[in-house]
Design a protein around this nucleic acid. Structure first.
Lengths: 234, 234
DNA sequence: GCCCTCGGATTTGTATACAAGAATATCACG
DNA sequence: CGTGATATTCTTGTATACAAATCCGAGGGC
C-alpha cells in the first residue's frame, strides 16, 4: 500500500514491537500523530487495525493502550500457535516447492552455525542471526501452506507475544533439539508427509513455549549450561 | 459499544449477511452513509473492520466490495473451522460448566424435534428452529473454551461462508448423523474427555463441509431422501 | 472501424474543525 | 484536613472540507 494509513500502521506497530511503548501504556492519538507525521485519521485507522490484531486494546472514549499479556494468556497463545503452525506445516508438506525446501536447508544451516559459534565462544549474542533465519524459516512454511486466512491467524498469535520482549532462555540441549526439529521438518516435507510435518511443528512450538513461559531465573533441569536468550523462538 | 461506528458496523454486516449485497458487489462509502445514517468516517471504520474479518475486500483507492469465495477457498475455510472448533471443543471439555451442558442438552433436543417434525411432515422449512439452536449450541461451546483469541478466529471462519447464502443440503441420514454428533459431544463433555470432544467436533464440521461444498443438484449416495436445506450448519 | 489519449466526473484518502464524553483539578463544605 | 460536587481541560468520536487517485467517456489519430 502506498497510503499514509499503512505508514502509520507500520510505524506504530514497530514502536510497540521495539518496546518503545510498554504493555499497558496509553497511546494518545495526538502523540502518535507527531511520531508518524500524519494526521489523526490514519492514526486512528492504524490503531483500529492493531486492535483487531491484538497488539493494542481500545476502550470507547478512553483510547488505546498496548495490550498486556498474562502468564496463562501466554500459554493459551502458544497453544493456538501450535495449532495454527502445525496445521500450516501439514498443508505445506503437500504444497511446498523444492526451491523453498532448498531455502529451508540453507536457513537451518545458518541457525546451526549461529548456535555452534555461540556455544564455542560462550557468547550469548545469538539473537540476530538466529532469530532472523528462524523467522524466515517459519514464514516460508506459512507461505507454502498457501492459505491467507491461516496466515492472518498466524500473525495474530506470533506477533502478540513479542510485545512482552521476553527473551526465551534456551538451554543448550533445548537449542540442539530445536535445530533437530528444523531438519526433521525438512525431511517430512521432502517425504510429502503432512502428518509427520504437522507433528514435528507441534513439538517444535510446544517446546518453544516451555522456554518462554519459564520465568527468568528458573533453572533448567540439570547441566551447567546457561540459557541462551533468544528473541522470536520456535 | 455505544458509538456510531459500532452501529455502522452492525448495519453493513447485516446487509451483507442478509444478502442485500451480493459477493463481488462494490460498496460505495456514500451509499452506505445513507443506509446507516451516519457520516463517512464511521462507515470507513466499519469497512476496515469488516475487511479484517474477511467479509469485504478493499483495495486502495478502489474501495470495498463484498468478498467472493470460490469452491476451493470454501474447502480451506471449512478445514480451518474444523481446526478451530475442534480445538475449542477440547478446551471446553475441561472447562464447561454443568449448567452449560444442561443447556446443550436442551438445544440438542430442540434440533431433534425440529428434524423429526420436518421429516414427518415432509416439509423443508427446517431452517429457523434448527439453525437458531445450532448456532447457540456452537456458541456455548466456544464460550466454554474461554479463549477470546480463539473466538475471534472462529468468527473469521464462521461468518464468511454465510455471505454465500448457500443452503447446505443435508440428506436425512446426514441430519441424523449430525444429531448424533451433538449427543456424543455432550457425552464427551460429561466425561471431561478433551480428545474425544475434539475428535467428535472435527467429524461434525468435516461432515458439514461435505453437505455445503456439494453442488446444488448433486445427488446423495443413495436413498430417496431429498436434501434438507439448512442455513448455518455444523 | 478500432485503439489510444486526454479531460471531466466520481470516489477514495487525508486533514481539520467541531461535538461529546472522561479525567482531573479546584473549591466549597463538613 | 478530608471529602465531595462542580467546572475545566483534555481526549476521543464524528462530520465535513479539501486533495489525490481512479474510472469512464469523448475525441482524435491510425
Amino acid at each position: 500500500m502506498s497510503t499514509v494509513s499503512a505508514l502509520a500502521y507500520k510505524v506504530i506497530r514497530s514502536l510497540i514491537l521495539e518496546g518503545r511503548f510498554i504493555p499497558g501504556e496509553r497511546l494518545k492519538e495526538e502523540e502518535l500523530t507527531d511520531l508518524c507525521g500524519v494526521s489523526r485519521t490514519p492514526v486512528r485507522e492504524a490503531l483500529r487495525r492493531l486492535a483487531l490484531e491484538g497488539l493494542v486494546v481500545l476502550t470507547p472514549h478512553q483510547g488505546a493502550q498496548v495490550a498486556e499479556i498474562g502468564e496463562i494468556e501466554l500459554q493459551e497463545i502458544y497453544a493456538l500457535r501450535a495449532m495454527i503452525e502445525s496445521h500450516a506445516a501439514g498443508r505445506a508438506a503437500k504444497r511446498i516447492a523444492l526451491s523453498a525446501i532448498a531455502r529451508l536447508k540453507v536457513l537451518a544451516g545458518q541457525m546451526e552455525d549461529a548456535v555452534a559459534q555461540a556455544v564455542r565462544r560462550r557468547q550469548t549474542k545469538l539473537y540476530e542471526r538466529y532469530t532472523t533465519a528462524n523467522s524466515e524459516f517459519h514464514r516460508i512454511i506459512m507461505e507454502a501452506a498457501d492459505s491467507p486466512r491461516l496466515s492472518a491467524m498466524a500473525t495474530l498469535v506470533v506477533e502478540v507475544p513479542l510485545i512482552l520482549r521476553t527473551l526465551a532462555r534456551y538451554s543448550e540441549s533445548e537449542l540442539s533439539r530445536s535445530l533437530h526439529h528444523h531438519r526433521e521438518l525438512i525431511e517430512a516435507f521432502e517425504a510429502r508427509d503432512e502428518d509427520w510435518a504437522s507433528s514435528v511443528m507441534r513439538c517444535h512450538i510446544r517446546a518453544a513455549a516451555q522456554a518462554v513461559v519459564r520465568p527468568e531465573g528458573e533453572a533448567e533441569p540439570a547441566g551447567n549450561d546457561q540459557g541462551q536468550p533468544l528473541g522470536q523462538v520456535g
